[in-house]
């Protein structure tokens, strides 16, 4: 005797997982109440109907493929990043020293065979920008905004404190050209010469 409820016995009979004890119980139940066999038959019919119904709908699943992998695109940058990139590129270009060594800093976008213009655009090869390297046409410090305290801690030698602050200076730079980061047809970032609008009144 498996002592399972009738619904479990019927389920196991349908799933073909009924043990000998389950079948014995089902036989005994059918002897007491012949309607058990009718319920078993109905459950079998329901199972067949449901399987057909599910199969018919699931055929649609076979038509659904994964979407094609997309080429990696640059994440959409906030608007101010365009300005920052433009300024950085302009500084890099100005600081790259290509005036002295045009061949060394030639743009990779330029035809190898064409002569480098005397003051053509250049991309920083190492991407490092050091203020010491800047070769601006002119650079005036106009003022300084209030500094922002970022971190303070006792100095390592025990004397005084080490303070990390952010200083924001206001400068007027003069560069020959400004570039923005644009995308080519493959989604790669490329510099594009750009004529900026007037941002503010002259200081």
């Amino acid at each position: 005797m498996s002592n399972q409820p009738e619904e479990v016995l019927i389920h196991r009979a349908i799933e073909l997982t009924a043990s000998a004890a389950d079948w014995a119980d089902l036989d005994a139940a059918a002897l007491r109440d012949p309607a058990v066999l009718q319920r078993l038959a109905s459950a079998l019919q329901d199972e067949g109907d449901l399987r057909r119904g599910v199969e018919e709908r699931l055929a649609a699943a076979e038509r659904v493929a994964l979407p094609q992998a997309k080429a990696r695109r640059l994440p959409r940058a906030p608007a101010w990043l365009g300005w920052a990139a433009a300024a950085a590129l302009a500084l890099i270009w100005s600081a790259s020293g290509f005036l002295d060594e045009p061949a060394k800093h030639a743009s990779p976008l330029r035809d190898a065979g064409s002569p480098a213009p005397e003051r053509g655009p250049a991309l920083a090869g190492d991407g490092v920008l050091s203020l010491d390297d800047l070769r601006l046409v002119s650079n005036d410090t106009l003022g300084e905004l209030p500094s922002m305290m970022l971190e303070t801690r006792p100095a390592a030698d025990g004397r005084g404190y080490e303070v990390i602050r952010l200083r924001r200076t206001l400068e007027r730079l003069h560069v020959d050209q400004i570039f923005r980061v644009a995308e080519d047809e493959h989604g790669n970032a490329v510099p594009a010469q750009w004529t900026p609008p007037v941002l503010s009144e002259r200081m």
């Binding site: 109907d49 449901l50 119904g53 018919e56």
Partner: peptide
Amino acid sequence: RAAAARAL
């Protein structure tokens, strides 16, 4: 088919 759809 109707019985299958109804069961589902």
